[in-house]
Amino acid sequence: MLSYLVRRIPSAVGVLFAASFLIFLMLRLIPGDPVDALAGQDATQESRDAIRADLGLDKPFWSQYVSWLGGLFRLDLGQSYRIGGDVGDLLRNGALNTVVLTVAALLIALVLALVTSLVAVIRDSRWLNAALNAVNTIGLALPTFASGLLLVLVFAVVFPLLPSGGTPPEGYLARPDISVQYLLLPAFCLALPVWAGLSRFLTEALRSQLRQPYITTARAAGVSRTRLVVRHALPNALPSAVTVLGIQVGTLLGGAVLVEQIFTWPGLGSLIELAISGRDYPVVQVLLLLSVAVFVVTQLLTDVLQAWLDPRIRIGGAR
């Protein structure tokens, strides 16, 4: 197993090296110059030259690349050109906010999907099903920017119950009651399509289980419908729902970019948007490389997991 893992690591490192070079090169090929973005329209050529030298952008391409790579090995992610500050600090703050938001959204989606699916299957009422179907369809069809603005309008403007955006002023832990209120609208907005998709899938999976012979037997033994669904059908329906949830997590992370904009949530999504528009090379480079690294590590773990579960893969790999 260990030797299998060791064999896979060089290719993963190779991919990361190649990605680092491509990212570095591509950023310098796209139109737009960080010096222009920083200097402003009225700056003289003398100012531009001074800023370029100050940022080290007057050095040869290879020198800049090696210097950046060397910094990465020393865990020095560099200084942001335009946003300002240490790239590592920017990344940590943004990542914390994005993780809090996505985890909260995931929890909301999970709980809501579980509750609505169970209620729909246990009650099996025509009207209830129709209502839940309608909610699911809206949840799936409504784009995040529309649902976000709608939520703000209703819960922050017309009925000012919750903040319209921003993060808790004193951090997440100092005042949990306040933090929950700040999180509710953006997390619910992000959770909406995931809840709708998951709820629809879980409801169908539960109904499919209810048609199985073991359920008929249990029903004949006088087991109540609630117990049948919760104790017997749900455990068998959950594994496939977890697979769907795994796919939905990707949707969640992608959706976070938009939701962060709507709710002024300073996470990684808004950070990368800001960095790209200002041609803030050090920030964009690290964020793109990080996304590649996450993908590579996930692939590596998946391969290892599969090899662990299926010995044929290990053997095949040994040949």
Partner: peptide, 11 residues
Amino acid sequence: QAQAAGIRSGQ
């Protein structure tokens, strides 16, 4: 738009 919503909601 978020600014306008924020001032209306007292933020």
